[in-house]
Write a protein that binds this DNA or RNA. Structure first.
Lengths: 240, 240
DNA sequence: CGGCAAATTGACACATCTCAAAGCCTGTGG
DNA sequence: CCACAGGCTTTGAGATGTGTCAATTTGCCG
């Protein structure tokens, strides 16, 4: 199947594409796959040598906790338009991978073919490379937030980032997010226990900033939330 | 000045280079600069549009703490052979940058020229891109360690990583590291207070694992240190 | 209605931070 | 060679943040 316009539209969030580049991208062959909640989208082995682009839904990069192997650590989140495992040249431990959070739909491209496109169009190579760099920059900001903010301010920062990212691709609006994610999974992102996430969420509720019921998160006071989280979206490198 | 053989040797740690690639790399022009302890190697503005390769010494990527602006957060360390600010397409806040830890020496290359080389040699483009991905992978592992390990085990993990990285480029041997770094700066890496780093260091000393005096760190029991830190070096993607 | 998983709350233990003080090292000036 | 000053390290005590365990409540789904 030909590659979807999603892919192209999301690339254009970051950089203008020439006519030749557009044409070459449209000639890529791809395969769309739907995933159920909790399924592995790409395992650490990445046997098929594939890269993926999120079309719908949400996915997380999970690692095994080093001391309690039954719990996990999440080091990245991916939404519509985000690349996943684009590179494929990093050796990863056998217990990390990309997991679908809720239902999701992913478009796969063979890595060889991407490398081929990158070789033909240096501008696209640069764009793919930039994607990896932005992913790393988001992680850096997570680390800065983790050491700078605690409890509810830290959770507020996550909500600010997620709303900004989702709104930028039209997957959220009017200060409402749909996050198919449990408190336990938020804990795996922030490095807290699930119970502490619950307390942080209660604090945001008590302050009248956020209402979080089930998978629906409603931001009641965007300015107040940003202020508490000291949120500055520039690290997301969004053009709009 | 022509580019140093350091650069080339360190690239070959990660991937074989063809004769053509070697030739093209040797034609790059570069400039070597020495830095004193604490000097900024690259500011967030990166005005000169330069990338750097560490030749000697140590550097850290620092960010401003979000709540206490006089303290910092360190999200990356760079040693001989490591690229710094290779990409240059990520917008960073004005308070982050690369700082020399102790004296260091850096080789600068103009980013345009690197992009040019990457456009001519897709294999090199892939290699540069891989460098960014490995940098991110190290940060992911830091995050996993930060949520999995505490206190002395966390510090032990840092020592294991640093010794492995430094030994792989010949900048450390016989279980001795020379780290021009204060306890306060280790705290900025691990996300602890300096006092807590001191207590963690005392614990490692009491266990007979590490002796850390001034800038000299001696690993007394490598196997024991690795066991405590649950260290697995595969995330560093080192070939040797 | 029953059953299960998740969310919520409380009590307590442990990890880590902050503040304060003392000890140590090193460079400087007499 | 000594005295001193300053910054770093070390240690202690108390405050705060966060984890664990247990119990209850809520919400969803059969």
């Amino acid at each position: 199947m030909a590659i979807s316009e999603f892919f192209i539209r999301y690339l254009q969030r970051r950089q203008e594409l020439s006519a030749g580049e557009l044409c070459r991208l449209r000639a890529l062959s791809s395969e769309r796959v739907e995933f159920e909640s909790g399924e592995f989208i790409l395992s650490s082995r990445n046997e098929a040598g594939r890269s993926g682009i999120m079309l719908q839904g949400m996915a997380a990069r999970v690692h095994r906790n080093m001391t309690t192997p039954d719990s996990r650590v999440i080091t990245g989140l991916y939404f519509a338009g985000d690349f996943i495992e684009l590179q494929g040249f990093v050796t990863r431990p056998p217990d990390s991978g990309i997991v679908s959070m809720g239902r999701s739909s992913v478009e796969f491209v063979r890595q060889e073919e991407l490398q081929q496109v990158a070789a033909e169009y240096p501008g696209l190579a640069r764009l793919f490379w930039m994607t990896t760099a932005i992913d790393a920059e988001v992680l850096r900001q997570w680390q800065v937030a983790a050491t700078s903010l605690r409890s509810s301010a830290h959770l507020a920062h996550l909500f600010c980032e997620l709303y900004t990212r989702l709104a930028s691709v039209g997957a959220a609006q009017d200060l409402v997010l749909n996050l198919p994610i449990l408190q336990r999974e938020v804990a795996e992102i922030l490095g807290y226990s699930a119970i502490h996430v619950n307390r942080a969420a209660r604090d945001l509720r008590d302050r009248g900033l956020v209402r979080w019921i089930g998978s629906e998160v409603v931001i009641l006071d965007w300015e107040g939330l940003k202020r508490l989280a000291r949120f500055d979206p520039s690290y997301l490198s969004l053009v709009n």
